[in-house]
Amino acid sequence: MMQTVLTVTAVVLSLAAAGAIVRIGRGPSLLDRVLAADVLLAIFGAALCIDMAVNRHLNNLMLLVAISLIGFVGSVTVARFVAERRESVRES
């Protein structure tokens, strides 16, 4: 049964990652791309989680936490940067 679950989730997650990558490529603005990159990281996290659950180990757990931290710090930084830059451009 675990093999079926693995196949199904692999297909679903690949489709989801493809969707997020399309949005990163197309996304009209920088913020859209950041958002899509965040989702892509979450999908990686989901894949790591499924790997751990199917193979019954916990080696990726810290990697999972690190990935979600990177997503958080990344999107907050870009959001701040975008806001600052746009405001100064508008003034000049």
């Binding site: 679903v12 989801a16 997020a20 979450a42 989901a46 989680c49």
Partner: peptide, 11 residues
Amino acid sequence: VTGALMSLGAA
């Protein structure tokens, strides 16, 4: 499977 579907929903 539901968790993976959630990722697909986000995409």
